[in-house]
Design a protein around this nucleic acid. Structure first.
Lengths: 345, 345
DNA sequence: ACGGTGACTGGGAGCGCTCCCAATCCGGTG
DNA sequence: CACCGGATTGGGAGCGCTCCCAGTCACCGT
């Protein structure tokens, strides 16, 4: 049989194969494979010969071939609900990606980015993941009723969540200590002598939003606070605006607001200004995220910083761990937040 | 997490193969393959039988096997220099990704996200791309001396740039019409009766920055403007601050500033406030990007909007085109910008 | 000297898919 | 009724790699 190299995409110099390296080094395929994969049981002599051949030929393993036999893909997916990329403070997005990338840096894993926008895409994603096209999944911004985590568990796919669905989340996750952060924010307002401290919440089907609300409540005392001081919103500026208007109407005496996101806090500040209330003299404002928005409002906003990039890095490390050790029990990690005080409080 | 799969090849429920589908449908592998890939020359009868079998078995093609033989990977890489994710206005990042994802939406291509941070990683990326692990590359935020585009051309890898290296860029690219945008901004300032219109530039090794500077010059008249009205910076807030200080010192009479990015404009506004100049009464300010920052400065900032998400979408479509038709000549697309007038001017 | 031992090594057997070609089928022709 | 050509079909031959096992070989103990 002639070995007619009829490569369909025959551009560029044909890449050398394992076989070519073996021939050049005067050894068998098995030995080259062992060297490439760092297995032991290869004589020093053979190893150097192979390494030399690899260098000379510029050999790079064909990932598809490897995947075909090992059924490892050497890639992980980062799944982000697209809506969140609009609502949530912008840096959340880039910081997460940066953290994940950093966590993957000296692996040779690839990062697949998947934005899910519609319910239909969600289903496609499910099929996609079931097809085992990645070794693991990072899932951020999960809502309470998100079906994806359960799916992942069902198909036995390693996964780590950024944030949790509830405080009984079984899957592995990394999250910021939202409750403590919120509590610190409200206590800071109390320290400043504020007495009527309202809060603007995020969507309560997200645990992060609930936890921040809890922090507000706990800082104010054990018993549930006056409901008139709580306005529900959705993390958007528009929502923050509406919530602040409602609060002013219900509680003209309000002298401080803790918003569960910077963007909502910015909206609140607008409303306060229009209402003729000075910030911070009449009403103090504290946000959450410490995003770029917080630094540019007028006055600059006090906010609770969460270590998003580090969350991404940690999630990634945990995922790689779970991929490498399939039996591993799920782990839960909380990272500390930090109150950044500026002039709005 | 109950059963620890110790058998390497034992995946949850063994995924059905092409062969299984063929058996079930009572046809040969070739026929199933033809149906799956939409080739013609399949009788209606065979086709429906195959489709039925696929549905019943829940068959999903194994991508690795396909890649191995076709040497297509069905994935494209989006390469982003990591430094840019910090400097450039944040939404740039997420908008681009959103656009690219949208462009890929009804393909079954996957998106690989690659952040390049160090020179070493840059080299690894070169090796990676040379290994033909993706079908095409999207490259954003290219600097004038970026070696990557040439590499891509050398290895004959389909690529589309977001922005260009110079106005003689040979590779395909999509960019915003920076010069017109800048010109519109400066003309707007002239309309407002401003006479000493300074500009704060981005790093001039980026064509976008140069083009914005050109726009400033051309709006002011054919001849090169007074150099004292031009301050070079780097797209960062810090840079904008330094530049504005320098401008105030050199030209106390300055009555307007056009900054090549919102973040720099925000820095400039800070400096102006500290210097006791009112915006816009004493000095009008216009930014570029129309990012979230522009909406939250005090006063809200006039800015030049660029359709970033659309750029991402367009780039992606062009790339898919180039992948599908290898002979295609390179194309250059400029998208219009739009001046968004707010209270800072 | 000889079997035993452990360290290495080569290469067959696929992984699941696409390509391609020979084989088959069928209606229409002469 | 034999023959022809186009439409359809089945399945062999790999793609490049890892796994695994049967050797091979130098060396040791008795």
């Amino acid at each position: 049989m002639s070995r007619v190299a009829k490569n369909p995409a025959s551009r560029g110099s044909a890449r050398p194969t394992l076989e070519a390296v073996a021939a050049r080094a005067g050894v068998g395929r098995g030995t080259v494979s062992r060297v490439v994969n760092g297995s032991e049981g290869v004589s020093a002599k053979a190893r150097t010969a192979v390494q030399k051949a690899i260098a000379e030929l510029g050999y790079v393993p064909n990932r598809a071939a490897r995947t075909l036999v090992t059924s490892r893909t050497d890639s992980v997916a980062l799944v982000i609900p697209e809506a969140e990329t609009r609502l949530v403070a912008e840096p959340y997005f880039s910081d997460t990606i940066r953290g994940v990338t950093a966590g993957l840096a000296d692996t040779d894993m690839q990062l697949l980015l998947i934005l899910v926008r519609t319910a239909k895409e969600r289903e496609r994603l499910a099929a996609y993941l079931s097809a085992q096209r990645v070794d693991g999944v990072l899932l951020v911004s999960v809502h309470r009723d998100d079906p994806l985590p359960n799916l992942l568990e069902t198909i036995d796919m390693p996964a780590v969540l950024g944030g949790r669905r509830s405080d009984r989340e079984p899957l592995s996750y990394v999250h910021a200590d939202n409750e403590s952060g919120a509590r610190a924010a409200v206590e800071h307002l109390l320290d400043r002598g504020r007495r009527a401290i309202a809060t603007i919440t995020g969507p309560l089907d997200m645990e992060a939003a609930r936890a921040r609300l809890d922090g507000h409540r706990k800082a104010l005392g054990a018993e549930p606070p006056d409901a008139s001081l709580v306005a529900q919103a959705d993390f958007t500026e528009e929502g923050g605006i509406r919530a602040m208007r409602a609060l002013l109407e219900r509680r003209p005496d309000v002298d401080a607001v803790f918003a569960a996101s910077d963007v909502m806090a910015a909206g609140a500040m607008q409303v306060l200004r229009e209402a003729g209330r000075r910030v911070p003299e009449d009403v103090a404002v504290v946000g959450f995220d410490d995003s770029i928005v917080a630094r540019h409002t007028d006055p600059p906003m006090t906010s609770v910083r969460q270590p998003i990039e580090e969350m991404g890095r940690t999630m990634t490390r945990m995922l790689l761990d779970e991929i490498a050790n399939p039996g591993l029990p799920h782990r839960h990690v909380a990272l500390a937040t930090e109150l950044v005080v500026r002039e709005s409080s």
